[in-house]
Every structure is written in C-alpha cells, then in structure tokens.
Design a protein around this nucleic acid. Sequence first.
DNA 1: CAGAGCTGTCATCAG
DNA 2: GGCTGATGACAGCTC
Length: 697
Amino acid sequence: MKYLKPWWSDSGSLLHLTILLSLAGLRLDLDLDLDLYLLLPPPTLLGDELLLSGGPASPAYALSPFPASGGWGRAELLHPKGRERDPVAPPVGQLLREVRALGVPFIPCTRVDAWLVHSVAAGDADGAHALLGAAAASSAGGVGAGVNGVSQAAPGSGGNPRAAPSSPLAAGEEEKAPAELTAQVSDAGGHASEENEVLRAVDHSSQHEENEQRASTQREKSLQQKNEDENKVADKPVWEAEKTSEPRNERHRNGTDTSFSLEDLFQLLSSQPENPLEGISLGDSPLPESTNDGMNSSTHCNANFSQAVSHDVNLHEAMLCPDNTFRRDPVARTSQPQELFLQLNSPLTNPEQTLSGTNLTGFLPFDNQMRDLTNQDLLYDLDINIFDEINLMSLATEGGFDPMEVSQLFEEPDSDSGLSINSSHNSTSVTKYNSSRSVCEGASRSRSDLESLSHRDLQGAVGGCYPEPTKLCHMDHRSDTHFHGKFAFQPILHNHTYHLQPSALESTYESFSWPGKSQKIRHGYLNDTDRNLSRDEQHAKALHIPFSVDEIVQMPVDSFNSMLSRYYLTDFQVSLIRDIRRRGKNKVAVQNCRRRKLDVILNLEDDVCNLQAKKETLKRERSQCHKAINIMKQKLRDLYHDVFNRLRDEEGRPVNPNQYALQCSRDGSVLIVPKELVTPGQKNENQKGKRKSERRN
DNA sequence: CAGAGCTGTCATCAG
DNA sequence: GGCTGATGACAGCTC
C-alpha cells in the first residue's frame, strides 16, 4: 500500500498521486478520477497506509461551505473539523507547480484538485484564479468563498450519484454546479496560451493574485465570446452532451468536446518548457505538433486527444478499450472483450505493453516508489470498478460475450484470476488468491458451466464463507450506494476452491431435479471436498447460484423475492433456489418439530415419574391411615368389651354382648339396647363397615 | 446383516 | 393465494 501514500505527505497537500490512478488515468478523464475518488472510503477506514489525500497532519480536507459569489467563487482548504483553514496546506498553485516540476502526470483525485486542474486546463480564468487565489489566500491566512457543486460539476460525470454522500457541501449548493460547470466547460475550448498564463499565474505570489485574476478574467471573457459560436455543443451540460448521438471522438475531432481529461492535463503539463513529459507520445495516432507547441488552439488540443485517447469515458470503457482509443460504440466495445481485458492484464508481465501499440514507456516517469507498485495491485484496484461497471451476469446473456473469456482475461500464470482478485481490497494479498487456475479448466466445461461462469464473482458464498444475511449488499450492487465501499474495502471471502468435474457437474445438473435420486448420485462422483457440502449446496454450486444456501433460506421473503427479480436467473436456477429455500425452511422446521417432540416425550416421561412417585406417596399415606384406623377399631373393641364386662343386669348377672349392643343416642347418652331392636339401617351400616374393614385388612 | 437412531425430504394441514 | 410452521410418513445413512 505504500504506493498509495500521499505523494508529498510532508506538505499536507490535497493532491495525491497513485500509480493506480496514474496508469488508469492514461485512459480516464477527470470525472472518472472523481468517480474513483468517490469510491474510496474515508481515510479513517483504511488506516494510515491508505491516506487519500494530505499527510499525517491533514489527512482529509473539506471544501469551504461558503456559497459561491459570482461564478466560481473561491476555495480554501479546510480541515473537516471546525471548518478552519488548514495552516499546513500549501498554496494550491504551489502544489500544482510541484506536480509539474516532478514531471509526473498529475491526476486530480480530490475535488479541489480536480477543479483546479480543470479550470486551468480549460482556460477558465475565473475558476482558476478563484482556486489559485484561494490557494494564495490559504497560504496567507485569508478566508475565501467556497467552490460549490464540485462533485456534480465534475466534467463528464453526469452527476455522479455517489458524489452526494461524500460531498461536504450542502445539497442546495451542489445543484448550482452543473450550470457553473457548463459555463466552464463551454470555455474549455483549449486556450493554450491562456492556460499557460494561468499556469504561470500559479507561480505568482499572493500579491500578484488579484491582478492576474483580473487579467485572466478579461481574457477568459473575450475568448468566451470569441468561441461562443463554435462551441454550441459545449453549452449543454456535460451529461446532456453525453447523450448526443455524435460519437465522442467525433466531437473531439470537431473540437466540440470540452470535457477535460488527463490527456488534457498531460498536454497542459507537457506544454511547459521544462516539463519532462515533453515529447512523449500518446499513442499510435500521430499527435499533432500542438502536443509540444503549447497547444495553440483548442482544436488542436481536443483533436490530439481525441485521436490518442478518448475523453470522458468511464472505467468500464477504459477496461473494454481494445486499443489506445476509447470507443463509445457499444459494438466496438463488446467486439473485442478478450483483448480489452488482456490489455489490462498484460502489464502484469510487461508494463510497457499497457497500451497496446502505444509508446507509453516514457509517459510516466515513475519514481522508485511508484515502480514498486505491482501490476496486480493496479488491476486489483481497477477491479473495484470492474464489478461496478460490468454486470457479468447480464453480459453473460448477451451474444458474443463469453464469460470464459472474461475469466481468462484476468488470468495470469502466477496470480489469481481477475474475478477473484476483487475479493479483497488489500492489494498485498492479491497474490494470495491462487484459485484462478481452476478457471482454466473451464475450457473443457459444458456450455451450462460456461454460461454460468460469470456468476462466479458472486457465488463465492456458496460453499464458502457466507456473508451475513443482513449484509446482502450485493443483491443490488448497482443501486446500493454503500456497495462500493463495502465491496471494495471489505474482504470478501469467496471460496473459489470448488470446481466440479464436468461429469460431476452434468450429473449434478441432471440429478438436482430429482431429489430422491440425488443422494445416491452425489456420493458417486463427489470428491471429499464436495461431500462436505450439502446436496443443495452442491446443486447451487453446480448451477452457479450466486447466493449461499444460508442466504437463500434465511433471508426474508421480501429480500428473497427481490433477489429473484433483480438477478438474471434461469428457470432452473429460480426453481432450484425456491426448492433450496423450501427444503431449508422445512429442514429447520423438522428440526424444531423433532426437538419439540423430544421435549414432549421427555416431559411425559417426567410426568410419569412424578405420577409414579406421587402414587407411592399416596400408597404410603393410605397404609398409614389403615394402620391408624385399625388401631382405633381395636381400641373401640377393647372399650366395648370393657364396657360389657362392667355392665350388670337387674339380677346382678353380666350382660351378654351377643344379645345386647351399645347405641349412642343424639343427645350423647349411651343406651344398652337388645340387638333385635337395632334398626335395619344401622345393621347394614355396621355390616358394611365390617366388610370394608375386612377387605382393607 | 438386522436394527436402532439420526437426518433429510415430501406431503399435508393449519394459521 | 402464498408463505410458514408443524407433523406424520418414508427413505437413506451411520453405527
């Protein structure tokens, strides 16, 4: 990551230059740089090794929130905290001069940088002087007005929606940007002399700022009036100009393309006498002499770059550009997909062939630090946008697009495939991914395998490390504004180690529709690794379902339906996904059911034990009661006999207990009654009591 | 080799 | 009407 450190961190500049953006910048224009910049996360998320701008003392900056006053207004570099001017920030003009002196193509990666360079290159006196004046004011401790709408006003950006979250400016002020940009773009007719003036003005001190600004403003106004009729197209907003049917390079040739690109910057820099970039060729297309003559006209300026490198392209096109010239034509774009990616891949082994047929070896006078950057790192960082711009799943359905080619394009002998190098933003770990070799095996795969190979970038969760279901950011990575950050900077632990043999794949593909037979089949062909996977996981892997089984099963029904609708899935895949979900749900339900059933059984067993214990207790209590009753009966009998032994009749003879009985009356008195006079009811009760007592005994 | 236990799947019903 | 949970029945696998 050392190559991503700020170039001159000591100065605390906003400007930073990376090899990635330098190399990519050869083909990308300003808006894409901004786009890349906007893709970058806050420095705090990346740690000290990935400071985006500024140095340790000023890791980040914010634009002044002050509203524009009369066009561009002025800008100063502020700390994000406190809205205070950064005391360590050098003048912007000084920074630009340093860039030019170092002879490295300056790629504006921050908004202030972008606008500065844009305004300078476009010959915008107001904008340039506003910025330069802001820089001077910044160095002098002054306070200026802010530049508004930088994010949306980026040339050719078309209003990058991702700019909004990252912009420190108020939304209302950002809306002014397109109009302001239009004004600036319309003036970007390439006034080389004016640009030189502006560049020279960069070197001026703050004391000369106002005079120079006024002079530039006057020149700018005059030139604006002069070229007003010639740049009708440029009066349109950039995003509207993008929609015109006129090809981009045609507009370049016509001198109507006013968007600023790195080539503009390069030419701007190379126009300086001391610029070491002087004389560097941009490509096979013969550069007009204006490349070195200081850009005498806007026509030359734009025509040169249109022939060498197209302007205002996105990274997608940059990746797909087969030659040195960007093509807006989708047919041309898709006609040579392999060459396009191979072109990006080629620097891995031969950086000088980065631009095929283009003599760019001298373009970038990389210093040693920059040379340390490996091409894998470059590709890796570029890959962030590869997946942002390229919907492989959609491309896979287009005719003429062979996902296998894509996979091969990213291949290199000693590194991971291009599809998997995106798995982590840590460029140093790129070489750790060695799963790309198996992609080569796809040459012998079945058609179904090839068709679904493009999903591999998304299917890593299947059989691998599954992301949390709540982090289904990839469900709609095109619309999720948070996707880029997560996707780019969170390591996605894709597992690309599984690769079914063609026979196994076919067997799985054929058997997945018959679950009853699949289990028998799967054990016949699966290797040890695949046996660790469940059947659904194997099926999902075979059909390249871009989701893990856990995701399919656990995601909410809304997300599930949204997933099915947003992704291009074949009927087979949809059916399989639904089956997986159904089976997964049922599997969990069965487990719960059996768990509950087991709990019920255990509870019943506990109840039985409890009831048995209670029964025993009751038995013991009953036995104790019987014993007590018998004791009482025995005592009663003893008392009965004792009473009769003591009784005497009128003649003094003992009373026979068989003829008489004791009867208790209601008033508590005890009477001696002959048994013949005992009522039948009393007899029955007495007999029942006797029988019961006999049975109990 | 038979059987118990576990697990997955399907069909069905109910909420 | 679709989804989900619950449950019985069945089959396959392991020990």
